[in-house]
C-alpha cells in the first residue's frame, strides 16, 4: 500500500507554487488540500485592547481588519495557543499601516507592511495593544495560511486525427497543465512527457496543435496542485506541514483502533 509519490514543480515562488503530484488517490489529494487550509496554524491578532480610537471607524471594524493582517509564523518555535503581544500607535494626520504594528517578538511581524488599517485625519489618534494567537484555520478563517489552494487533474492531450481541411477551427479552451503526448504535432520544441502549463499557448489547444483533432483525458493518480500562502510562511512550509499533519492523524487513528 505504500506508494512512492513523485512531485514535480511547474512554478515555484515564495508565496505561490504549482506542482504535479503523482501516485495520489483523489481522497488523499483532497485530504492534503483540506489540511493546507485548516490544519496548518498561523498567527493572527485575536484580542485588541484599545487605548484610544478617535478614527472614523468603530473599534470592532478596526479589530476585524487587524485580524486579517497576515503575521509571519515560525512554526518551529511556537505551539498552537501561544500568544505574542503587538501594539500600534499612530497620530493623525497619517495613515496607520500594518507595518506600523510593533511586535514583542521579532519573529512574529506583519508579513505585508503596506496594508492600510485606517486613515487618520487631523487630531485623530489610534492606539491599542493586541494579542496575536497561533490558531487553526478550521477555527477561524483568519488563521488560514493557505489561500486559494486547489488541485485539478493532470491532463493528457492526444492527437487523434486531422481536422477537416475546410472546417473553421474553433478555439478549444483547456486550462491547467497538460502532459505532452503528441510532441511531433505540437508547435515549438516539445518532447513527450513534458509538463506544459496551458497559459503558454493561450489556453487554446488549436494554437498548440493547429489543424489537428485532439482528445483530452485525465491522467489517473496525477494531480496539479496550485497553492498560495498569505505570507505567514512560504509554500514549502505550508505543504510539508499539511502533509505531516495528515500523517500524524493517520498514525493516531492506527494507534487508536489497534486491536
Amino acid at each position: 500500500m505504500v506508494n512512492d509519490f513523485q512531485v514535480e514543480f511547474i512554478e515555484r515562488e515564495d508565496r505561490r507554487a504549482r506542482f504535479v503530484a503523482r501516485g495520489l488517490t483523489p481522497a488523499l489529494a483532497n485530504g492534503i488540500r483540506r489540511a493546507m487550509v485548516a490544519d496548518v496554524p498561523t498567527f493572527s491578532i485575536d484580542t485588541v485592547r484599545f487605548v484610544e480610537n478617535t478614527s472614523v471607524m468603530f473599534d470592532e471594524m478596526i479589530g476585524l481588519r487587524l485580524g486579517l493582517v497576515p503575521l509571519t509564523t515560525p512554526l518551529d518555535d511556537f505551539e498552537p495557543g501561544d500568544t505574542v503581544t503587538v501594539a500600534l500607535e499612530v497620530d493623525g494626520p497619517a495613515t496607520a499601516y500594518s507595518g506600523d504594528i510593533e511586535s514583542a517578538d521579532d519573529m512574529v511581524v506583519p508579513a505585508d507592511e503596506n496594508i492600510p488599517i485606517i486613515e487618520l485625519k487631523e487630531g485623530q489618534r489610534l492606539e491599542f495593544e493586541a494579542d496575536a494567537v497561533l490558531g487553526y484555520g478550521k477555527d477561524h478563517a483568519k488563521n488560514q495560511g493557505g489561500v486559494a489552494v486547489g488541485y485539478r487533474h493532470l491532463q493528457r492531450v492526444e492527437v487523434v486525427g486531422d481536422a477537416g481541411e475546410f472546417d473553421e477551427q474553433e478555439p478549444n479552451i483547456l486550462r491547467g497543465v497538460i502532459e505532452e503526448a503528441a510532441a511531433e504535432h505540437a508547435e515549438g520544441d516539445a518532447e513527450d512527457g513534458d509538463l506544459v502549463a496551458t497559459e503558454t499557448f493561450g489556453n487554446d489547444l488549436t494554437e498548440r496543435y493547429p489543424g489537428k483533432e485532439v482528445e483530452v483525458h485525465d491522467v489517473p493518480e496525477a494531480f496539479v496542485f496550485s497553492v498560495e500562502t498569505d505570507g505567514s510562511f512560504d509554500v514549502d512550509e505550508l505543504v510539508t506541514r499539511a502533509v505531516a499533519s495528515l500523517g500524524d492523524r493517520a498514525a493516531e487513528l492506527e494507534e487508536k483502533v489497534a486491536l
Binding site: 486579517l68 493582517v69 508579513a111 503596506n114 496594508i115 492600510p116 478563517a141 489561500v147 498569505d230 505570507g231
Partner: peptide, 12 residues
C-alpha cells in the same frame, strides 16, 4: 472571495 491579501497593493 479567495482571501488573498490585496490591501497591500492599494496605495500603488
Amino acid at each position: 472571495t479567495c482571501g488573498t491579501v490585496i490591501g497591500e497593493h492599494w496605495d500603488e
